[in-house]
Nucleic acid binder design. Structure first.
Lengths: 214, 214
DNA sequence: TTGGAACTGGAACGAACGTACCACTCGGTT
DNA sequence: AACCGAGTGGTACGTTCGTTCCAGTTCCAA
């Protein structure tokens, strides 16, 4: 039996829209959804196949094992999320006040806790599983490092006198607020509490837009 | 077939050291260990029985279903952890400088990431699963609320002008630092980064011991 | 000492699991 | 037209799962 990767799929980042590759992408998307709302504990090959509307046999063709599928799904998620985070912080750099910065971060977290909740839950499923699987841990580390560098640059532009520590704090606050509010339905007062916490954090760290001007 | 709870086990918080109750406690302890190092996905009744050194049949006697067992294990964990957190912050109140406070928190996180790593991983497994199970979510909410109140009191004593927000920030930073460093082996430089982040957070929030004296 | 409830542990059930298999269809090259 | 590898999908294997059952044992009250 032949496996994909022998011809066009051979490059490091396979194009997923070629013949057959569409299915591979659909499988990974389905897996991310299932992980988000049933957890890794509820993730079965059959559940993925059903979610993707594909026969069970298709999964074995594109992925050697379930663990391989999980790894590729995680990689896909981090690739996608990197863009989202980058976009969120790109808007920040042009902000004039600490409140504007906090507002961007509030919107980012709010989106994760509402429309993108499934995706956010999947992310933490992966992070926890990373403590047990070295292959996932490598992805986590690379992902976290990229984040910290990006946020560090932003902090630098906002006038931080210790960008490395500030990015560590900001990333921790974001992750912590997400985790702490995941098991609660997100009502307006909670969103306000998150906004207040972010404002105070940004303000007290002395971060403000256009710091390079004066 | 009779179930426990018909006699001495009937009270709300059953004493686990009575006849047979020793076994129930052993099962919950075993479950917490298995969840910590195999995850909820790797948690099976057989794995718990093996970890506890008990026959499979024993589990069905003390717990109606696997989900019941998981719920009780979570409750046990939060009860235990509440004491630990309380102790960590009790030491804080007598500290004189922001650095002392940060040091307490650093030690707390360090302990979680090293000796108590299994327990910490289990905690986040529970938190994520809480997004899917209302019964676990209730425990999470109560647990988080208790934490915030306690930390709020501490922040108050340390001179905070907004204890509620400060406790939200501090809890988020702690959770975030834990999550962000779970998939990486904890080396001394990482510990130092955590300490630095905590010092800066506490300092910038204007928290200091003996604030009531001045 | 006897009765009954609490407790034990091994065996067994049907269901769901990951994976492998294979006859089949399709598209492009020779 | 003949061919071959890529892609397909239904089936089936062996394993592990949660749960149930029950004959047997231990303990305490009567």
């Amino acid at each position: 039996m032949s496996r994909p990767g022998g011809s066009a799929q051979q490059r490091d980042t396979p194009v997923l829209t070629e013949r057959g590759g569409v299915r591979k992408a659909a499988i990974l998307e389905a897996a991310l959804r299932v992980i988000g709302d049933k957890g890794l504990a509820g993730l079965s090959m059959r559940a993925i196949a059903a979610e993707a509307g594909l026969p069970l046999g298709a999964l074995g063709y594109y992925f050697k094992t379930k663990d391989d599928l999980i790894l590729e799904a995680f990689e896909l998620h981090t690739r996608r999320e990197a863009d989202r985070v980058l976009a969120a912080f790109a808007g920040v750099e042009n902000g004039d006040h600490a409140d504007d910065i906090a507002e961007h971060l509030t919107a980012f977290i709010h989106h994760g806790l509402t429309e993108a909740r499934t995706s956010l839950v999947a992310e933490y499923e992966f992070l926890i599983e990373s403590t047990r699987r070295p292959d996932l841990a490598r992805v986590s580390r690379a992902w976290r490092q990229a984040l910290q560098i990006q946020v560090g640059h932003v902090a630098s532009r906002l006038g931080s006198d210790d960008p490395e520590t500030d990015s560590e704090i900001i990333l921790a606050v974001i992750a912590g607020l997400e985790i702490d509010h995941l098991s609660t339905p997100l009502d307006p007062s909670t969103t306000q509490a998150i906004r207040t916490a972010l404002r105070r954090t940004i303000t007290r760290l002395g971060l403000r837009g256009n710091a390079a001007r004066h």
